[in-house]
């Protein structure tokens, strides 16, 4: 009896305890609410649950709009300049890959692309573009400093800034610098540059210049073609045609031939200064990067990019005064405010 009585007592005590606990817990909850302890937690819960509904989706999405930079070779000055200029224009890229090292582990690069899952892959140079195109499926790619971009495969997610200045823009500057130059010769291969050449001929008419062209099929035809072309023109426009710019030896010979004929060469790359080019006009890298940054920000902001591959808007001009004096060219000194570098 005693035992059962104790048990009974125990059961009823437990029951009493449970009901007491319930009442106490209810009271605590009531007191906590009334003191504002739970109400602030509830408020925070509601705010964090509902807040995203009121924030524009663009703002929330921007966190996921990372940029990955792929550089063909950061040890090359113009490529490293492009990278630093871009970093000054956009928020810090999520990743930067330099393909300049001799051995490239494609699997590692692909893994990095997958991990970062960037909104845009920004490619500096042809090698970087080819790599991104190969490894990053369905990603937005923005390229710059890609030589002859038309020779590369592109798809609907490809954007970029062409590395080549428009023919019309170059011809305008030739006319501005050397008002007496009326006939300019171009050596090219129909296979690679026919369309480019036709545009140049049309654009030249707008600035009162006549283009005289000579198409060659092989690099060994350069010498004989120049013999026929040079007497008919005031200057030669050396373009990035792979048959004409075949190797160092053929380019050297071309410069020697023009020098002997007293004909100045206008061209597109600083590398030709030492060979004796008179005027070099190339796309201005900082301007190209500003244009690229604008495209990147357009993609990040889900804006429509009207022109997927844009022409460079700025020019960089190198004038070789030694050659101007040697050939006795009539230089428009007003144009000197447009020169970026003078070679003496």
């Amino acid at each position: 009896m005693e035992k059962s009585g104790r048990i009974r007592k125990g059961v009823s005590g437990k029951m009493k305890n449970e009901s007491f606990n319930k009442i106490a817990s209810g009271l605590r909850t009531y007191i906590s609410f009334s003191r504002g302890k739970y109400s602030s937690i509830m408020l925070l819960f509601i705010v964090f649950t509902l807040l995203p509904l009121f924030i524009p989706s663009d703002l929330l999405a921007s966190e996921d709009k990372d940029v990955l930079v792929l550089n063909s070779d950061a040890s090359i000055y113009k490529y490293s300049l492009a990278q630093s200029e871009l970093k000054a224009k956009i928020a810090t890229p999520k990743g930067e890959i330099d393909l300049g090292s001799k051995w490239i582990d494609e699997r590692k690069i692909k893994k990095m692309i997958n991990e970062i899952d960037p909104c845009v892959i920004y490619c500096i140079g042809s090698k970087a573009y080819q790599m991104a195109y190969k490894l990053a499926e369905k990603k937005n790619i923005v390229f710059s400093l890609v030589i002859n971009w038309r020779r590369h495969p592109i798809d609907k997610d490809t954007y970029g800034i062409s590395n080549e200045l428009l023919q019309g823009a170059q011809l305008m500057m030739y006319r501005y610098f050397f008002p007496d130059v009326n006939k300019i010769g171009i050596l090219y291969n129909n296979k690679y540059s026919e369309e480019w050449f036709d545009i140049a001929v049309e654009s030249a008419k707008d600035v009162g210049i006549r283009i005289v062209g000579k198409s060659i099929s092989k690099p060994d035809k350069i010498e004989s073609a120049l013999k026929k072309l040079l007497p008919k023109v005031d200057a030669l426009w050396l373009i990035p045609d792979p048959t004409v710019i075949y190797d160092i030896e053929s380019v050297n010979k071309l410069f020697e031939q023009c020098q002997a004929a007293g004909k100045p060469i206008y061209t597109y790359d600083k590398a030709f200064v030492n060979l004796g080019a008179t005027l070099i006009m190339s796309a201005d890298i900082p301007t190209m990067i500003k244009q690229s940054a604008e495209i990147i920000s357009g993609i990040q902001g889900n804006m429509e990019i009207e022109e997927k591959v844009q022409h460079p808007a700025g020019s960089h001009i190198i004038l070789n005064m030694k050659k101007v004096e040697e050939y006795g060219l009539n230089l428009n000194i007003e144009a000197l405010d447009s020169v970026n570098e003078i070679v003496r």
Partner: peptide
Amino acid sequence: KILTVPKDIDALMAVGYGMA
């Protein structure tokens, strides 16, 4: 949106050729 270019003539050509 201001596109800074190296020279005035670049700015005018940028309009002429559709970059600005």
